[in-house]
Amino acid sequence: MKGFKMLKLGLILSAYCLVGCVALAAVYNSTSKVIAQRQADDLRAALQEVFPTADSFVPTDKVKSPSEQIVFEQAFTANAGGKSQGIAVKVKGPSYGGPTTLLVGISANGTVTGVKVLENNDTPGLGANAASSTYYVNKTTKTTFAGQFAGKKLTDAFEVKNDVLAITSATITSRSITGLVQAVGKAAGEALGIGQSTTVRPVELVPGADEAHMAAAQAVSANPSVTVLETWAVTREGTVIGAVAKVEGRGFEGKITGYVGLSQDGTITGVVLVSSGDTPGLGDQVLKSSFTDQFVGMKASDPITVGNGVTAITGATYSSTGAAALVKSAADALEKALAGGGL
């Protein structure tokens, strides 16, 4: 008899739960679309805010978070007129009162285009001022805490109370947000080929150029030992005047990575080799500009091999040969890409 009573109570309780669930399902169905739509609109508006010059945002997975505590929830390439202008990342990381979420825009020329605090659970009146649009860290110029990052160079120190103005009585919040912006800057910079470790800016490899855009399609190397990692189209006042490729090839023992710029007429305009896995003091001498500058002015159609216009580094013939092959393959690939109009 007691078992029957328990069963009855259980059934009654489940009846209430069932009705509750049905009601919730109905409400969820009617609101979920509105909520999703609103969140998408919010994100889109926020992206536009941190990247005012872009007109479309395409999700990308190229940007990788440097640590487990910092989560890159979403990343977008910001495009204008079909050309990539940079990267915007929605990043979540720890702050004083729990996780904080930011949207950070990084342009292809290595500056922060904007920062917006999407979520922040820090102390109201102190750390929460990070998200406020009326709290100014600089009252004379009416700069908000997040607003001060716009236009900041990735090569800056990002030090609170030095080149970043702190929020009064909220140093931890200020530091964590600054750190997140810098982390995004670093990761996006690497993805865009403007990382701090390699200060190569594609636009500088072609004289007279004023802008470099990520190319829509990669140039393809015909040499199997050389890989084109990234390709940029370089323009002057909107007209393509050349192209730059980030390439990786084989040296003596390790890999050589570098950038090669080629003008529209097939002349090599700039070569920068950024890393070499070869013997320190010998093979890695190919990174020196005294070696790389000899390529400038050569044509992509030239043979470009050691002995054929290229002078090898003494004691590092293999590395020099590898570097020359790298430049030759990159130039060939770029010339093909430029001729094909695929940029």
Partner: peptide, 9 residues
């Protein structure tokens, strides 16, 4: 929950 969803929307 109903109110939470309605507010979010």
């Amino acid at each position: 929950t109903i109110m939470d969803l309605a507010m979010k929307a």
